[in-house]
Amino acid sequence: MDTNSYLKSVLSSQALETDGEELKNLCAERDRVKSILFAAFSDDPPSIRYAGSYAKGTLVKESYDLDLTSYFRRDSTIAGETLAEIWQSVIKVLSSDYVVQPKTSALRLVSNSQVYFHIDVVPGRFVDDSKSNVYLHQNNGTKQRLKTNLDVHVDFIKESDVVPSIRLLKLWKCRRVISVKQFVFELLVIDLLRSNESASLEEQLVAFWETVVDTPDPIVPEDPANPQGNDLSSLLTDVTWSELQTVSQTTLRQIENSGWEAVFGPVEASRTEVMHRERLHQAAAVITNPTRPWFSLE
């Protein structure tokens, strides 16, 4: 198999199967979240849509969150007068069914038994009646609100012609646990591959890593939804850039020394739960020095 076919196979293995259990469970949970929010704000319900990688088509199975918007009308006060009040109201409503973990502009939902559902809710308020631009509450950092636009983001990514490379590089970033925010990383990939859009997957990935390695200062992409208002430089600092450079360099070396499988591993075949269980038992059976987990009651 040549490199491009290999990379395409890796991509296929990272798609959520449309009729799979995982997606069914996720959709069921999404419906539950939706009905909780609709019931709580039934007189003036928020707009609930997919956002994030699911909407943009950049999802990789190995690491994904299903972002759901909860955007209220510009002059709606059902969830509060201010963005901070909306944020708190949504937390309060969801807390009846979930453990809610506030992030910067999203609320992560975890079950009472600490199971993470891969669902984040993003509360916000539309800027005007066109229901396009939206203000998001910022839970940390210096800004209190962020102006953004989901449609602009989705279109920008989808029209970029580099979605397959974005997905592969997201997989690479996830496997190496590189601390760059997902949406900034996607914009960075588009920025760096602007002149390589017609190149092969292999060429695009190498171009990305080589550009990162060869550029001493961080390349900070523009936020297409608010180019003047959202400065992303605080999300791509010297420290983060240096981390990206180091890992990119190691990756290029791995390709040179051991080939592409050292970067993305063998292509993982789709599996049924029965097959998975069987393989787990096989793996446990060959352990020669079993260990037993413990817990210190600190």
Binding site: E273, L280, H281, T291, R292
Partner: peptide, 15 residues
């Protein structure tokens, strides 16, 4: 995660 037993057992918690 799949609700199966720990294949080689587990230690009791604490002391």
């Amino acid at each position: 995660e799949l609700g199966m037993d720990w294949p080689h057992g587990e230690r009791q918690h604490g002391f």
